[in-house]
């Protein structure tokens, strides 16, 4: 069996249950540490699988470029608070497949925090962006949904509002609430709702205006240089 497969099985069967067990045994509010550890442990198999299959130089540079473009995209658009970051991640997932989508998302989150500051949310953001990019890759596969800009935009809106935003809010719930109750969760989610909606609207605008030309360009580069995924 391949080393990376072994690592995934060990993670799911041993590491995660062990963390959960220890987490329940710890006194006080240990849920932040427990949940963050589990998030990190869930990402390990993805990264190990990527390392294990020894990616080609072209794939590496491609992912690095898309992640760097996602980070730099904030500067390219002369509007304050307009972040097209997630739109770029979705588009790379759509064109280059689920694995590239995950890597672009996770690396974007991690690397951008070296510029804007790491925090308690870093692993959560990596997971949220990575899984979002991967989902885009699965949904818009060859046999999946058609790659129309408005469908991708609708997908982008739903992922930001239902997955990325709530996941990041969760990391805050675990840190700032002394007692977890449904009301507390609801309050934090509502407080984050405005920010999540504005983030989702940025994503939708970017995908609608920019989806078609960039899809064509990405596909052209992919076909021109024979990068079939």
């Amino acid at each position: 069996m391949k080393k990376s497969h072994m690592a995934s099985i060990l993670t799911f069967l041993l590491l995660v249950p062990a963390t959960l067990y220890l987490g329940t045994r710890l006194p006080g509010r240990s849920y932040y540490i427990t949940s963050t550890l589990i998030i990190i442990e869930l990402m390990i198999p993805f990264f190990l699988a990527y390392e294990g299959r020894r990616p080609q130089a072209r794939e590496l540079v491609l992912i690095a470029v898309m992640a760097a473009a996602a980070i730099a995209s904030r500067v390219a658009i002369p509007l304050p608070h307009f972040k097209p970051v997630f739109a770029v991640i979705i588009l790379s997932g759509v064109v280059f497949g689920p694995e590239a989508g995950f890597m672009v998302g996770a690396i974007t989150a991690f690397a951008s925090n070296f510029f804007y500051g790491q925090g308690s949310f870093t692993p959560w953001q990596m997971m949220a962006f990575g899984a979002g990019g991967m989902l885009a890759g699965f949904v818009f596969q060859k046999k999946g949904l058609p790659r129309k800009p408005w469908i991708i935009a609708a997908f982008g809106f739903l992922t930001v509002v239902l997955w990325i935003g709530p996941l990041l809010d969760c990391s805050h719930i675990f840190l700032i609430m002394s007692k977890i109750s449904w009301e507390a969760v609801l309050a934090v989610l509502l407080a984050g709702f405005y920010a999540n909606i504005s983030q989702a609207i940025c994503t939708v605008i970017t995908l609608l205006l920019f989806g078609k030309p960039i899809l064509e360009k990405l596909d052209r580069v992919r076909i021109k240089y024979g990068m079939t995924n």
Partner: peptide, 23 residues
């Protein structure tokens, strides 16, 4: 917004072509 999108689009194609050469 339109100007920004045009810049972003040009940026990505430039960077992608460069990435293939680097690779």
């Amino acid at each position: 917004l339109d100007a920004g999108m045009a810049v972003l689009s040009a940026l990505i194609s430039w960077a992608l072509e460069g990435s293939v050469v680097t690779g």
